[in-house]
């Protein structure tokens, strides 16, 4: 399989605190890569570095390189806006635009990225909502406020919104941690359905979830990547003692 993202010597800081230390990792195209680790280990910072949203925060710094199809997204000539169109992101807490309807939420990315054709927008919105397994629940209330949806529906709406801009990679930062078990199961199902088309990187607290949905897993601890391997190997035959301790529940 091809390598979609190649991360080399990635370091990240918040002010003087180093959140990521020399991360090296390859992300396979059309695979699901899970990032696990205890709270504060840098896994969220890691995915936020992959679409250059980390640098939006005050005092946040990054160095190192992230190659997207061989092109460094941190090179001086790379426009972060264009990077983010190719690498979408779903956040931990569902964050639909509160002032917009369900339809407008999904259309926002398409419209504000310059496409004006009404039919095309409507088509892409419908396609994206269908792909996010939300269509049957919202098709009769597309013009109602997005904030009236349940948490799980809002999160699928956020996934639809991300899919609508047709990215190549989708980053998911604990997309199900704020949801109930049924909504979580639906999100996991959804990940399985869309992974043929996208490269997915998912951060999760939940090791069972990582085991269920991912092909590859990276274990982070205190800002370092301890181990990275096929998910089956990580969970059945961890090479590092710390990984083993974590997945067997001895800390974290």
């Amino acid at each position: 399989m091809a390598k979609k993202l190649i991360i080399e010597h990635l370091n990240a800081w918040f002010g003087n605190v180093q959140a990521l230390k020399d991360i090296n990792l390859d992300i396979e195209e059309n695979g699901v890569t899970a990032v696990i680790g205890p709270s504060g280990c840098g896994k969220t910072t890691f995915v936020r570095c992959l679409n250059r949203i980390h640098e939006v925060v005050d005092n946040a710094k990054v160095n190192g390189s992230v190659l997207l199809d061989g092109e460094n997204i941190y090179s001086n000539t790379m426009d972060p806006v264009l990077v983010r169109r190719r690498i979408g992101m779903v956040f931990q807490k569902p964050n639909p635009f509160p002032s917009m309807s369900i339809f407008e939420n999904v259309a926002a990315g398409i419209r504000l990225n310059g496409s004006k054709k009404k039919n095309e927008i409507a088509d892409r919105v419908e396609k994206s909502i269908k792909m996010s397994a939300l269509w049957d629940e919202v098709k009769d209330k597309l013009y109602k406020s997005a904030t009236a949806l349940s948490g799980g529906q809002q999160q699928r709406l956020c996934i639809a919104r991300t899919i609508a801009i047709e990215p190549e990679v989708i980053l998911m930062d604990e997309p199900a941690s704020a949801l109930d078990p049924i909504s979580t199961a639906r999100i996991e199902e959804l990940i399985q359905q869309i992974k043929e088309r996208y490269t997915i990187v998912i951060v999760t607290h939940n090791m069972q979830q990582a085991a269920r949905v991912s092909d590859y897993t990276g274990f982070f601890l205190l800002g370092e990547l301890i181990e990275f391997n096929k998910t089956s190997d990580i969970f059945t035959n961890p090479k590092d003692k710390k990984t083993e301790d974590y997945i067997t529940g001895r800390f974290g």
């Binding site: 983010r84 509160p98 990315g109 504000l112 990225n113 919104r161 801009i165 990215p167």
Partner: peptide
């Protein structure tokens, strides 16, 4: 989180501010 949601969709900052 609303600003980040907009930026993460590849929307330029000025449009995020003005339209979102």
């Amino acid at each position: 989180t609303i600003r980040e949601a907009g930026l993460a969709l590849g929307i330029p900052q000025w449009k995020v501010i003005l339209f979102i």
